[in-house]
Deep mutational scan, measured.
Amino acid sequence: MSIQHFRVALIPFFAAFCLPVFAHPETLVKVKDAEDQLGARVGYIELDLNSGKILESFRPEERFPMMSTFKVLLCGAVLSRVDAGQEQLGRRIHYSQNDLVEYSPVTEKHLTDGMTVRELCSAAITMSDNTAANLLLTTIGGPKELTAFLHNMGDHVTRLDRWEPELNEAIPNDERDTTMPAAMATTLRKLLTGELLTLASRQQLIDWMEADKVAGPLLRSALPAGWFIADKSGAGERGSRGIIAALGPDGKPSRIVVIYTTGSQATMDERNRQIAEIGASLIKHW
């Protein structure tokens, strides 16, 4: 067993022997301040990774656009098919120029040779490549099948209805392509620590998230040296922004954090800054 596999296998073990965790309302004060600064709703939840206990939450059962955070769930569904012998990570998928959609920095470079399922998941999570996500959605049967996968996990809230990039439209009061912070946090925890996926697939999923290259201005910008984070960000229309993450000190994750916002007129930089400040408060009061 590799060191990384050992780390993920012992996530519940280490967490069980940690000192009790206590909620700190100071972080919620910052979440509410972010709402004021952005002029928009902000949803927040913080779960203990081992027990699933909610440590703090704000608007945990209000719907927010998922945006690209759905790509972690998508690759979880792909990995479940791999575990069941219905898919192979090494299978190569070929596609054409007509398949390319807006923001496809990886797939646009491989029109000639195609990409493997493993490479597509890596591109979808680490670079948020939209064509990679659409190609992977095709392998599982489309958005409705991802929703069905989530329902089978016990998540009857999260739903995907459309493809990239239309799913980022974020129309107010439109339930399409949305989740709730509580539902997303619980589902992410199941994917990373539950028995739904094999140990190898859980490790692969967290490795992809740990290698995320496009979430630097968010929670990662607030992390002290030595902290662990595996995350996936999302951005959408109407001032929408979000991030889902597993993080913790001492090089291992111990909490799940989900943050979503929508309806702001603020710039992307300002949305990023507010999420980073929430992260800084979380870490300060850990």
Rank of each mutant, 00 (worst) to 15 (best):
S2L: 15
I3Y: 14
Q4P: 09
Q4I: 12
Q4F: 10
H5A: 09
F6T: 07
R7S: 09
R7T: 15
V8D: 09
L10I: 12
L10Y: 09
L10H: 06
I11P: 05
P12R: 05
F13T: 12
F13Y: 10
F14L: 09
F14H: 04
L19V: 15
L19T: 15
P20R: 13
V21R: 05
H24V: 14
H24L: 10
P25F: 08
E26G: 12
E26T: 13
T27F: 04
T27C: 08
T27V: 14
L28V: 11
V29L: 09
V29R: 08
K30W: 05
V31D: 01
K32F: 08
D33N: 15
E35G: 05
D36N: 13
Q37V: 15
Q37Y: 15
Q37A: 14
L38I: 10
G39W: 08
A40F: 04
A40N: 08
Y44L: 11
I45Y: 10
I45L: 13
E46D: 07
D48G: 06
D48T: 05
D48N: 08
L49M: 15
L49H: 05
S51E: 12
S51Y: 08
G52Q: 06
I54G: 04
I54N: 06
I54T: 11
I54V: 15
I54A: 13
L55T: 08
E56G: 12
S57W: 11
F58N: 15
R59V: 01
R59C: 04
E61L: 13
E62H: 08
E62S: 08
R63I: 09
F64T: 01
M66A: 07
S68F: 00
T69R: 00
F70N: 05
K71E: 00
V72S: 06
L73C: 08
L73T: 08
L73F: 08
L73W: 03
L74D: 00
C75T: 12
A77M: 11
V78E: 03
D83C: 04
G85C: 08
G85E: 11
Q88Y: 13
Q88N: 13
Q88E: 13
R92A: 09
H94E: 11
Y95F: 13
Y95Q: 02
Y95W: 10
Q97R: 15
N98T: 15
D99M: 12
E102R: 10
S104R: 03
S104I: 02
P105H: 06
P105K: 06
P105L: 06
P105F: 05
V106N: 06
T107F: 02
T107D: 01
E108N: 10
H110W: 08
H110F: 12
H110I: 05
H110T: 05
L111S: 08
T112Q: 15
M115E: 03
T116G: 04
E119R: 05
L120M: 11
C121P: 00
A124F: 00
A124N: 04
I125K: 00
T126W: 04
T126S: 12
M127E: 14
S128H: 00
S128W: 00
D129I: 00
A132E: 00
A133N: 02
A133C: 05
A133H: 01
A133E: 00
N134M: 04
L135K: 05
L135Q: 07
T138D: 12
T139G: 12
I140D: 02
G141E: 06
P143F: 03
K144N: 14
E145S: 12
E145A: 14
E145V: 12
L146D: 00
L146P: 00
T147C: 08
T147H: 07
T147G: 09
T147I: 08
A148E: 15
F149M: 11
L150A: 08
L150I: 14
L150F: 10
H151E: 12
N152F: 12
N152H: 15
D155L: 01
H156E: 10
T158L: 01
R159S: 08
L160V: 14
L160M: 12
D161P: 01
D161S: 07
W163D: 09
W163Q: 09
P165L: 08
L167S: 06
L167M: 12
E169P: 05
E169Q: 12
A170P: 08
A170H: 09
I171N: 15
P172R: 11
R176F: 09
D177S: 02
D177W: 01
M180K: 14
P181T: 05
P181S: 04
A182Q: 13
A182C: 13
A182T: 13
A183C: 08
A183M: 10
A183H: 12
T186G: 14
T186D: 14
T187Y: 03
T187C: 09
K190D: 15
K190G: 13
L191G: 01
E195L: 04
E195G: 14
E195T: 12
L197E: 04
L197V: 05
T198S: 13
L199I: 15
L199E: 15
A200H: 15
S201T: 08
R202A: 10
R202N: 06
Q203V: 15
Q203R: 14
Q203A: 12
Q204E: 14
Q204P: 02
L205R: 00
L205Q: 02
I206E: 09
D207R: 10
D207H: 09
W208L: 06
W208T: 03
E210G: 09
A211S: 13
A211Q: 14
A211P: 04
D212G: 06
K213Y: 09
V214Q: 07
V214F: 05
G216Y: 08
P217Y: 07
S221K: 13
A222R: 15
P224T: 06
A225M: 15
A225S: 13
A225L: 12
W227P: 00
W227Y: 07
W227G: 02
W227R: 00
F228I: 08
A230P: 00
A230Q: 02
A230S: 06
D231G: 04
D231T: 04
S233V: 02
A235R: 02
A235I: 04
A235Y: 02
G236D: 04
G239Q: 02
R241W: 02
R241Q: 04
I244R: 00
A245M: 04
A245K: 00
A246D: 03
A246M: 15
L247Q: 02
L247P: 00
G248F: 01
P249M: 08
P249Q: 09
P249D: 07
D250M: 12
G251P: 08
G251R: 11
K252C: 12
K252R: 13
S254M: 14
I256K: 00
I259W: 03
G263A: 08
Q265K: 15
A266P: 04
T267A: 13
M268Q: 08
M268D: 06
R271F: 04
R273K: 15
R273S: 10
Q274T: 15
I275Y: 05
A276L: 08
E277H: 08
I278Y: 01
G279C: 09
A280Q: 15
L282V: 12
I283T: 09
K284W: 10
H285M: 09
H285V: 09
